[in-house]
Simulated assay, not measured.
Amino acid sequence: MPESPDIAAVWSILLERRPGTRGATQEDLLPVVEAAYAEPRLRALYPFPTHGTLRFLRGTPPWREPNHDDLPFILYGGPPYEVYTSGYGELLGEAGTPAEAAALVVSHLPTGQGPA
C-alpha cells in the first residue's frame, strides 16, 4: 500500500489544485482551503474535502482511531458557509466569508488541538 502524504503535502496539493486531487475541479473549494490554511491550528490538521465539505482530521490515513473525524467542518459553496460539528450533529453557525468560517471552526476546536 502506498504511503499516505503528510499533512503539509496534502495542504500543498489542495492549494495547487493538482489534477486528480479530490475537489480540484470545484471552484468554490479553493477559497475555503486558502482561508483554512491561513489558520495555524487548522493547518496542523489533515484537510479532507468530501461531499461539499472541508473536514479537518486528526491525522493521516489510514485512520484507525475512532475519533479521527470528530472535529467541526465547513460546508462550502456559500455564502453563507455553514460550520457543523462532526456528523452534522449541530450547526455551529453561518459565516459570510471563508475566513469567518475557518475562524468559527478554530473557535470550536478542543483545547490543545493544533498550535496555539
Rank of each mutant, 00 (worst) to 15 (best):
W63R: 11
A101M: 03
P79F: 03
R64L: 14
D28F: 04
S86H: 09
P61L: 08
T21S: 15
A116M: 10
R43P: 09
V105F: 08
G93E: 04
Q26T: 12
G52Q: 10
P79M: 07
G93A: 10
Y76P: 05
R43V: 12
Y81A: 02
G87Y: 03
L109W: 04
T50K: 11
L71H: 00
G59V: 06
R18F: 04
P5R: 05
P115I: 12
G114N: 11
H68Y: 14
T85D: 12
W11E: 01
P72W: 08
E39T: 11
W63I: 05
G23A: 06
E82I: 05
A103W: 04
P31L: 03
L91V: 10
T21L: 09
A35I: 12
G23H: 02
F56T: 01
E100R: 15
A38V: 09
E16V: 10
F56R: 06
L29P: 03
A44Y: 06
P79C: 07
A44C: 12
Y84E: 06
G77L: 06
G93H: 01
P80T: 04
A99R: 07
H108M: 11
T53E: 13
V83H: 01
R17A: 11
E82D: 11
G59D: 15
S107E: 15
R55W: 00
T53C: 15
G59A: 15
T53L: 13
G96F: 08
E39V: 14
T25N: 13
V33A: 14
D28C: 08
S107V: 05
I74F: 04
T50R: 09
H51C: 09
V10Y: 03
A38K: 10
T53P: 12
E90P: 08
A8E: 15
L57Y: 01
P79L: 07
Q26G: 05
T97H: 05
A38C: 11
L109A: 13
P62V: 03
S4T: 06
Q113H: 09
A102L: 13
A36D: 03
